[in-house]
Computed example of a mutant assay.
Amino acid sequence: MKELKIPFSRYESSVSAHSNVSDSLDGEDVSQVQELEEEFCAYVGAKYSLATSHGTSALHLAMLALELKRGDKVVCSVNAHPNVPEVVRHFDAEPVFIDIVDGSYNIDLDKLEAYLEDNKSKKLKAVIITHLGGTTVDLDRVYSMASIYGVKIVEDASEALGATYKDKKIGSTGADLVCFNFSPHLKKNICNGGMLVSNDEEIMQRAKLLSNHAMVRDEDALEYIYDVTDIGNDYTLSELNAAYIRAQVKEQDKSIKKLQEIAKLYSKAFEGVVHITIPDMSNEEHPFLLYIIKIDKNRDSFAVALREEGIGSGLHYMPLHLLTYYKTKYSLRVNDFPVALRSFQQVLSLPIYASMSDEDIKTVIAKVKKIAKTRV
């Protein structure tokens, strides 16, 4: 496969990132992980944060912290990355899929509420809300449902770093736990890392205990003496990854402003172009961490044509009920989630990242328009 002139994503670097990494390599007496956790709390407005080795680690640790058990149920959008139901299945618990809203590609809250009303049970443990590309659902309504039906809310903010809801950063709006991923699906970073945040001290104390094999030490004892009080795992983030990510977080708001500018240019250029539907531009809080269009004819051939022109693209996501494991495990049919199915057949994510040059943007626009003219 030939190298793309404009890939779907590029990792972002900076002077700050190089400086932080150099400090770690030089053995500077600074805990990059601790600094990252403190800075992240300040950035999103949460009381507690815990850095993890990856976004999936943060999700898995969230399930551990909530004491998920065999037979428990966790509700999630059918349009999510496979790591969402995957972490649930690792506990031999059951993911429950809900269809999406056309246009936002997020979970349909009417269908979610109907499910919660019809399936009241102690086994119903939590709802995972995925913020696709940083777009949010009506979170006040979600938190109200949680209170009424006695479920925990875990937010999957893998694609929502820096996103806001009613001017509050995701991570501080009222969820029990929020999970971030600094190297999300199809937007791989040069490093991996995740973050778990909460305002619930008890949940976070449990998460912190379990994040390093549930090992505890007596401060007055020798350093190598420890006890193990539960079953945990190693979810810890390396100092080098933390050093790089600190700069990423520091620059995220600036990056989002750039993404919003690119999204406006895209939408202005694509408005009225035959076969293409642009995203809703009315939400001023939309961070456009993804720019998703709809192709009404032959989406896959459109993506192939883009690739042949040197332009990368992405898909967010393959609906979970179409994947062999979940389709077989839960006897799911193709038409069980019609909105997600229809969206899946049309959606395409275009390159959008802060380091795109004006020429890159113009090229993407020109190539998309060129290919759209060939659709019949």
Score class of each variant (00 low, 15 high):
Lys2Arg: 15
Phe8His: 15
Ser13Cys: 03
Ser13Trp: 11
Ala17Cys: 05
Ala17Lys: 09
Ser31Ile: 02
Cys41Ala: 07
Tyr43Trp: 07
Gly45Cys: 07
Gly45Gln: 09
Lys47Glu: 13
Thr52Gln: 08
Thr52Ala: 06
Met63His: 01
Ala65Cys: 08
Leu68Gln: 07
Gly71Ile: 07
Val84Asp: 04
Asp92Cys: 11
Asp92Ser: 12
Gly103Tyr: 14
Ile107Phe: 11
Lys111Ile: 02
Lys111Ser: 13
Ala114Gln: 13
Leu116Pro: 08
Asp118Trp: 04
Lys122Pro: 10
Leu124Lys: 05
Leu124Met: 15
Ala126Tyr: 01
Ile128Met: 14
Gly134Ala: 08
Asp140Leu: 06
Arg141Leu: 09
Met145Glu: 14
Ser147Ala: 12
Ser147Met: 05
Ile148Met: 13
Gly150Leu: 05
Lys152Phe: 11
Ala157Ser: 15
Gly162Trp: 00
Thr164Phe: 07
Asp167Met: 10
Lys169His: 14
Gly171Arg: 04
Thr173Tyr: 10
Thr173Ala: 14
Gly174Cys: 07
Leu177His: 08
Leu177Val: 02
Leu177Phe: 13
Val178Tyr: 03
Cys179Asn: 08
Asn181Phe: 03
Phe182Arg: 05
Leu186His: 02
Leu186Glu: 10
Asn189Gly: 12
Cys191Arg: 02
Gly194Ser: 06
Met195Gln: 02
Leu196Met: 04
Val197Cys: 14
Val197Glu: 02
Glu202Val: 11
Arg206Met: 03
Arg206Gly: 00
Leu210Trp: 01
Val216Cys: 00
Ala221Thr: 03
Leu222Arg: 09
Tyr224Ile: 08
Asp227His: 09
Gly232Trp: 06
Asn233Ile: 01
Leu237Asp: 11
Leu237His: 07
Leu237Glu: 13
Leu240Trp: 00
Tyr244Ile: 00
Ile245Cys: 07
Val249Arg: 06
Lys257Val: 12
Ile262Trp: 00
Leu265Gly: 13
Val273Gln: 04
Ile276Pro: 03
Ile278Ala: 12
Pro279Asp: 10
Met281Asp: 14
Glu285His: 07
Tyr291Val: 04
Ile292Trp: 01
Ile295Val: 15
Asn298Pro: 02
Asn298His: 10
Glu309Cys: 09
Ile311Lys: 11
Leu315Asp: 01
Leu322Arg: 08
Leu323His: 08
Thr328Trp: 04
Tyr330Ala: 05
Ser331His: 10
Phe337His: 14
Val339Gln: 07
Gln345Ser: 12
Gln346Thr: 14
Ser349Thr: 11
Ile352Leu: 13
Tyr353Gly: 03
Tyr353Met: 00
Tyr353Ser: 03
Ala354Ser: 15
Met356His: 06
Lys362Tyr: 00
Val364Met: 03
Ala366Asn: 04
Lys367Arg: 14
Lys370Gln: 14
Lys370Glu: 15
Ile371Met: 04
Ile371Pro: 09
Ala372Tyr: 05
Lys373Gly: 06
Thr374Asn: 05
